[in-house]
Simulated scan of single mutants.
Amino acid sequence: MQIESASGTGPAITGFSAKGYKVEAGSFRGVYRALTITPDAVAEWDAPALETLSPESFADLLAIDPRPEFLLLGTGATMQRPAPAFIRALEARGIGVEAMDSRAAARAWAVLRGEGRWVVGALYPL
C-alpha cells in the first residue's frame, strides 16, 4: 500500500507490504522488514516476541529528547495487546502505548507526524 506523505519532518513511512516498510528520510530511501522510528531516525529492528517486551527493549527509542508522547506499537498483521505490565511501566515514565496492527500503525505514523506530534514507533513485520 502507498501512503501519502505527511507534512511533518523526519522519516516517513511511504508504503508497506509483506516484504517490509518503505521509508524515506531526505535523500535516503530504504525498505525495512521491522523497524523503529523517531521524528529524527529510523532503524532496522530485530523484533522480540511481543510477550517479552519491556521498557529496556526500547531504551534508545524512549530516551529521545524531548520525551515522546507515546509509543506507537504496530503488532504485525493483527492487533495484539502487549502485556499490561509493559504498558504500566511505560505509563509510569509518562509515555503512553498505542497498540494496533502494523498497517494501521504505518498510516497513523503519517497522520501523527503530519500533525507535528512527538511520537516514536516500533512496527513488527506484517
Results as ranks from 00 to 15, higher is better:
Gly20Leu: 06
Asp65Leu: 14
Leu90Ile: 09
Gly30Lys: 02
Ala110Gln: 11
Ala47Gly: 03
Gly96Lys: 03
Gly114Ile: 10
Leu35His: 07
Ala92Thr: 08
Ala106Phe: 06
Ala122Pro: 14
Glu56Met: 04
Met1Thr: 14
Thr52Asp: 07
Arg103Glu: 12
Gly20Ser: 09
Phe28Cys: 02
Gly74Ala: 13
Asp60Ser: 14
Arg93Phe: 07
Leu112His: 11
Gly94Thr: 12
Glu91Pro: 01
Gly20Trp: 04
Gly10His: 07
Leu35Ala: 08
Ala12Gln: 15
Ala49Arg: 11
Thr75Tyr: 01
Glu115Thr: 09
Leu126Trp: 06
Ala83Leu: 06
Lys22Asp: 13
Glu98Val: 07
Thr52Phe: 00
Arg93Thr: 08
Val97Trp: 02
Asp60Asn: 12
Arg81Cys: 11
Gly76Val: 06
Gly10Leu: 09
Ala59Arg: 12
Gly30Ser: 13
Leu72Met: 13
Ala104Thr: 12
Gln80Thr: 08
Glu44Cys: 00
Pro84Ser: 09
Asp65Thr: 15
Thr38Ala: 07
Gly121Cys: 13
Glu51His: 06
Val119Tyr: 07
Ala18Tyr: 09
Gly96Tyr: 01
Val120Lys: 01
Gly94Glu: 11
Ala25Ile: 03
Phe16Ile: 12
Tyr124Ala: 15
Thr36Tyr: 02
Ala43Tyr: 00
Gly26Gln: 02
Val120His: 04
Asp46His: 05
Ile13Cys: 06
Ala106Glu: 04
Tyr124Glu: 11
Gln80Glu: 15
Ser57Asp: 04
Leu53Asp: 02
Leu50Met: 05
Gly96Val: 05
Phe70Lys: 06
Arg107Asp: 03
Leu126Met: 15
Ala25Phe: 09
Phe70Asp: 05
Met1Trp: 08
Glu44Leu: 05
Thr14Pro: 05
Glu4Ser: 14
Ala41Ile: 05
Ile37Asn: 00
Ala99Thr: 06
Ile95Asn: 01
Phe28Met: 11
Gly26Tyr: 04
Glu56Gly: 05
Val42Met: 08
Thr38Ile: 10
Lys19Cys: 10
Leu112Gly: 02
